[in-house]
């Protein structure tokens, strides 16, 4: 690891100040992505600004159909939260399937969303539920947030403070996991909402998480597994690597989507 200096501000304004004080400063949340990346010397932040001591970034509030999750809330906290389990069970279930117990005890929703790994789980829920990413300066709709693999609409030094979800009528997330890394080879989040169906796909796309408009139209007309039988998933847009070819991924998108629709609660 390259040397760095560690800061643990107690307020959001101090965190923003610490981030702007140093050119290559980075936010540190659970560290489950950033620390391994630093160990491999793929990241060399001049300063680490740990946001876990900022009270308003932690915790979950459920008010009616709205679930607001502080950015520094861990995957284990989301998975085990009674209000999330009741209001958006698909979200609690997704969080329970991230990595392994030790990763879930440390990793945070804000870190996962900010990182936008093309195989990460949370981006599928955020996009599939049309959630809102709240930062220290503004609110960003999920549709405007994800900008291709590892890229987001976040500005330099901008801090995610919370993610706000509206409960759908029903939803589910189905992941075909890579058994070694536990990340998604293909993960599909489907949701039936008042404004129609949403389908977000992670792991598969050559350019990160994406919505499938064909499946959304079909499921808006009829929210049933058979509805997507005729939908095309273009191989050309799929990622291809040692784990799975583009054709295999394209096939899995339909399989996972059907299972998600069948399992939606």
């Amino acid at each position: 690891m390259y040397p760095t200096t560690y800061h643990k501000p107690a307020s959001l304004s101090d965190a923003a100040a610490a981030l702007s004080a140093s050119d290559e400063a980075m936010v540190l949340a659970g560290g489950q992505t950033l620390l391994p990346t630093m160990k491999q010397r793929l990241a060399s932040p001049s300063a680490l600004v740990d946001i876990r001591a900022i009270p308003e970034l932690r915790g979950i509030t459920v008010s009616g159909a709205t679930v607001t999750i502080g950015a520094a809330t861990t995957h284990a906290e989301v998975a085990g939260h009674h209000g999330v389990q009741q209001t958006i069970p698909a979200l609690a279930c997704l969080a329970a399937g991230i990595g392994d117990p030790a990763v879930r005890h440390m990793g945070t929703i804000g870190g996962s969303v900010a990182n936008n790994d093309p195989a990460a789980d949370y981006p599928a829920a955020v996009l599939g539920l049309g959630a809102t990413v709240v930062t220290n300066t503004r609110e960003i709709a999920a549709d405007d947030f994800f900008e291709g693999m590892f890229a987001t609409a976040l500005d330099e030094g901008e801090i995610i403070t919370a993610i706000r979800f509206e409960a759908p009528k029903r939803a589910a997330y189905m992941k075909f996991r890579n058994p070694a890394s536990r990340y998604a080879i293909v993960g599909v989040f489907v949701a039936e909402t008042d404004a129609g169906a949403r389908v977000a796909v992670t792991g598969a796309g050559a350019d990160g998480v994406f919505r499938h408009s064909g499946m959304e139209a079909a499921l808006s007309a009829s929210f049933a597994p058979e509805a997507i039988d005729g939908c095309e998933v273009g191989e050309g847009d799929m990622a291809s690597d040692i784990h799975a070819s583009a054709a295999y991924r394209a096939h899995l998108v339909t399989v996972m989507a059907r299972r998600a629709v069948a399992g939606a609660v």
Binding site: Q32, L35, P101, A102, M106
Partner: peptide
């Protein structure tokens, strides 16, 4: 809570 000691500062 169980955590990976190699992935915490």
């Amino acid at each position: 809570r169980a955590v990976k000691a190699c992935t915490a500062l």
